[in-house]
Amino acid sequence: MIDINLKSDIIIPFDKIGDNGWDEKSKLIIESLAENWSNELQAPISIEEIENLEKHLETSLPNGLKIFYNTFGISDIGEELQRFEDIMWMKDLWEEDSPYGPDFSNEDKISLPHLITFSNYLGNGNMFCFHNETKEIYYFDHDTKPFITKMFHNVDDYLKGCLIFAQADLFGEVEQEQVEKWTEEIAVDLFGKDIVRKWRY
């Protein structure tokens, strides 16, 4: 199990999913999180199940996401990857002209028809989505207008960021607050201050 006492103990699991050793480093983080929270590890998802989801959505998933599902299933990555039955087109979450749905801006409406949800941010109603054409990652923040922000060029960076931030729960002799600070510093170096601020604050 990972035991973080120094900033250098924090693992950056990969540059790109599929790189040499990406699965070993990711597995160490995922298994450490499961042990820390006394959770069961999730089974890999078969290629057939992934292809069935793509047929249902009538579009392909980002390649990195498919590889992750096929290797680690719906694992705990610090944020809540959606079950396959919950993955859907964002535009279908609310009925058209629903008084209870978000008042999307004109800017939001450009990307909205292309977005498919796949991850919930801390269960607060915010979600991460991928673009059906570009496979870029967008963030839906129900508190801030415009509600939709492009965050990452690919899903690999999102999953990498989650696995880095999640290691704040694996603190050893140092305070968790210190490890949280270290993970944020690493994320800022990788993704930039603006992305981290939007994501975490």
Rank of each mutant, 00 (worst) to 15 (best):
residue 107 E to K: 12
residue 101 G to W: 12
residue 38 S to N: 15
residue 37 W to S: 10
residue 52 N to I: 09
residue 18 G to V: 06
residue 193 K to H: 09
residue 60 S to D: 14
residue 4 I to H: 00
residue 110 I to V: 15
residue 123 G to Q: 09
residue 79 E to K: 04
residue 23 D to M: 02
residue 126 N to L: 08
residue 24 E to S: 11
residue 196 V to F: 09
residue 104 F to A: 13
residue 6 L to R: 12
residue 85 E to L: 07
residue 151 M to T: 08
residue 201 Y to N: 15
residue 38 S to L: 10
residue 150 K to Q: 15
residue 134 T to Q: 01
residue 47 I to Q: 15
residue 88 M to V: 07
residue 87 I to F: 08
residue 195 I to L: 09
residue 169 D to L: 11
residue 197 R to K: 15
residue 133 E to N: 07
residue 112 L to K: 10
residue 166 A to D: 03
residue 144 T to I: 12
residue 55 K to N: 15
residue 21 G to H: 01
residue 137 I to Q: 02
residue 10 I to A: 02
residue 169 D to Y: 11
residue 37 W to L: 08
residue 181 K to S: 13
residue 71 T to N: 01
residue 103 D to N: 13
residue 172 G to M: 00
residue 185 E to K: 13
residue 93 L to W: 13
residue 22 W to Y: 01
residue 8 S to D: 15
residue 45 I to M: 05
residue 36 N to I: 08
residue 16 K to H: 14
residue 152 F to T: 03
residue 107 E to V: 14
residue 66 K to G: 09
residue 182 W to E: 01
residue 91 K to E: 12
residue 77 I to Y: 02
residue 130 F to I: 14
residue 86 D to R: 13
residue 150 K to C: 10
residue 168 A to S: 10
residue 176 Q to I: 05
residue 87 I to E: 07
residue 117 T to G: 02
residue 169 D to T: 07
residue 74 I to A: 03
residue 179 V to L: 01
residue 30 I to G: 01
residue 191 F to T: 11
residue 57 L to R: 07
residue 141 D to K: 12
residue 89 W to G: 04
residue 96 E to N: 03
residue 184 E to I: 11
residue 159 L to M: 05
residue 141 D to V: 03
residue 129 C to I: 02
residue 21 G to P: 02
residue 77 I to D: 03
residue 74 I to S: 01
residue 144 T to Y: 04
residue 163 L to W: 00
residue 95 E to I: 09
residue 116 I to C: 05
residue 36 N to A: 15
residue 16 K to G: 05
residue 181 K to P: 00
residue 3 D to R: 12
residue 6 L to C: 07
residue 136 E to P: 00
residue 91 K to A: 05
residue 138 Y to M: 03
residue 11 I to R: 12
residue 166 A to G: 10
residue 76 D to V: 08
residue 113 P to Q: 06
residue 149 T to R: 11
residue 159 L to V: 01
residue 68 F to M: 15
residue 154 N to T: 06
residue 156 D to L: 08
